[in-house]
Write a protein that binds this DNA or RNA. Structure first.
Lengths: 146, 146
DNA sequence: ACCAAAATGACAATACGTTGTCAACTGGGA
DNA sequence: TCCCAGTTGACAACGTATTGTCATTTTGGT
């Protein structure tokens, strides 16, 4: 019978490994569109409605500085545009440009195809159950975490 | 009914979130010992037997350059020592120093306690099942990945 | 209305990972 | 024996994320 400590280690290892695999898969999907996974995530966050840099950061769960650097770069590349924000003079609302939307649209089919292969290979019911368990685990980690 | 594309996105999000949570938890555990999670991983890899930097990298699944940079730092900090490698003149065997082992030992109790809380809160049987499913998912991603 | 606290963008330093390149070393086949 | 391919460490450039600090802007309580 494995110790709790061992189980914790195995779980962490499994999550780290999957994180690496999904990141690598994302890079392969995003690269043909000339963007990175991080750019993809930032553009994806403002597809439905404009957000400020800080707002994107909150939604993504990373620091606002990290988002800000990528947003600045995306604006320089012409994939993101800043519009004046009535609610905050220093914090413009960010939205994708036409080029930005095109980049995301170029990725979408590959992402959908990959997801479909993944769900069908793993089993749809099991896939949905796994997501549920991961979300429950996330809550548990927050609850007991050091 | 969610589309496969949505499910893929939810799954990726769940993994990324847990990765971030576990990384943060690891940092909290390792910090009192004066080391980082990356240092912990490298030291942990040579606890049982000395390895070369490239060997550690293979075991950890990251590039040898990343390990090399951390190993050089650990040697400078006196936590890791290099012994001549009969099998390769340029690639010394790396092993923890006494200080290195002490650092790991200072982390172990906290890690064990955190793991125990996690396993007991989540449910031991469900925890073990989740690890199994994650490993199966890892294999599936490798199989269908882009 | 005013003032302190919170939010925000800019900037710097740092950690960690990647790819690419180069020279030195190792090992195996002609 | 010799040479070539693979391994390895060093170094550089880059992408991403963090923390910390600063000045500016917004907001909420008195």
């Amino acid at each position: 019978m494995p110790s709790e400590s061992q189980l914790g280690g195995e779980f962490t290892l499994a999550i780290f490994k999957l994180h690496g695999q999904l990141l690598a898969a994302g890079e392969k999907l995003a690269e043909p569109a000339g963007i990175t996974v991080a750019w993809w995530q930032v553009l994806g966050a403002v597809l439905r409605q404009p957000l400020t840099a800080s707002g994107i950061a909150r939604q993504m769960g990373i620091t606002r500085q990290a988002v800000q650097r990528i947003a600045n770069r995306l604006i320089a590349e012409g994939l993101l545009q800043a519009s004046p924000n009535p609610a905050h003079k220093r914090s413009p609302l960010l939205a994708p440009t036409t080029d930005g939307r095109l980049a995301i649209e170029r990725i979408a089919p590959g992402q959908a195809a990959f997801s479909t292969r993944l769900v069908e290979s793993f089993g749809r019911a099991e896939f949905e159950a796994l997501i549920s368990e991961l979300e429950r685990m996330s809550i548990t980690v927050d609850a007991v975490g050091p």
